[in-house]
Simulated scan of single mutants.
Amino acid sequence: MARPAAPAEHDEAAEVVPAGKSKKKLFIIIGALVVLLGGGGAAAWFFSQPDDSPREAEEKLQKAPVYLALETFTVNLQDSEQYMQVDITLQVPDQAQVDAIKLHMPRVRSRLLTLLSSRHADELVSAADKLKLAQEIQAQVVQPFDPKGKPQQVDDVLFTSFVIQ
């Protein structure tokens, strides 16, 4: 009977040795998982970062143009039976300027109608003439609406339609 006891002791020793090897494999697998998860997390963080710094992103947002389309102007030109029909769009730096101009739109339209109706047809023929008119329109719009108010900001005046008949 001593013989059967010996193989049982041998089986316990055999079971202990593979358990040690399986712990080694378990540590290797856990270590590999930690490395993979850490690498995946690092890659996700790296690729989720914006290309620009926050300051550059803000500058890009601030530089986005804001446009305000004015209603069509139709005016009789000086000393002729011709008239001009023009669509004007203003480029302004921000929505606050759009709101300020819209608030005083009757005053803006009055200024521009006076300016446009004071022109002669032969003063509006060339591209240079139209550029000069755009600058004069800009000068009229940026004038303060209130005597003690500050001027509006208008970056550009764009003609979207320009007809003289």
Score class of each variant (00 low, 15 high):
Met1Asp: 11
Ala2Lys: 14
Arg3Val: 07
Pro4Lys: 14
Pro4Gly: 12
Ala6Val: 07
Glu9Trp: 09
Asp11Phe: 09
Glu15Arg: 15
Val16Ala: 15
Pro18Trp: 07
Pro18Val: 13
Ala19Phe: 07
Gly20Arg: 13
Gly20Asn: 07
Lys21Cys: 03
Lys24Asp: 09
Lys24Met: 09
Lys25Phe: 06
Leu26Ile: 07
Ile28Lys: 13
Ile30Gln: 11
Ile30Tyr: 05
Gly31Val: 02
Ala32Glu: 04
Leu37Glu: 07
Gly38Leu: 06
Gly39Tyr: 03
Gly40Ala: 12
Ala42Leu: 11
Ala44Tyr: 15
Phe46His: 15
Ser48Ala: 14
Ser48Glu: 10
Ser48His: 03
Ser48Met: 13
Pro50Asn: 00
Asp51Gly: 02
Pro54His: 09
Arg55Gly: 09
Glu59His: 05
Lys60Glu: 15
Gln62Met: 05
Gln62Val: 11
Ala64Tyr: 02
Pro65His: 00
Tyr67Ser: 04
Tyr67Asp: 06
Tyr67Thr: 02
Tyr67Trp: 12
Leu68Tyr: 14
Leu68Asp: 08
Leu70Pro: 07
Leu70Ala: 06
Glu71Lys: 10
Glu71Leu: 01
Thr72Gln: 15
Thr74Met: 07
Thr74Cys: 00
Gln78Ser: 04
Ser80Lys: 02
Gln82Arg: 15
Tyr83Ser: 13
Met84Gln: 12
Gln85Met: 08
Asp87Met: 11
Asp87Gly: 13
Asp87Ala: 12
Leu90Gly: 08
Gln91Phe: 06
Val92Leu: 03
Val98Ser: 08
Ile101Met: 04
Lys102Asp: 14
Lys102Tyr: 08
Pro106Arg: 01
Arg107Ala: 11
Val108Leu: 08
Val108Met: 04
Leu112Phe: 03
Leu112His: 01
Thr114Asn: 13
Thr114Gln: 15
Ser118Arg: 05
Arg119Asp: 01
Val125Asp: 11
Ser126Ile: 01
Ser126Arg: 10
Ala128Gly: 05
Ala128Leu: 10
Leu131Ser: 09
Lys132Phe: 01
Ala134Trp: 04
Glu136Met: 03
Ile137Tyr: 00
Pro144Tyr: 13
Phe145His: 10
Asp146Thr: 14
Lys150Met: 06
Pro151Gln: 09
Pro151Thr: 08
Gln153Ala: 12
Val154Gln: 04
Asp155Met: 14
Asp156Arg: 08
Val157Thr: 11
Leu158Thr: 06
Thr160Ser: 15
Ser161Asn: 15
Phe162Ala: 06
Ile164Gln: 05
Gln165Gly: 12
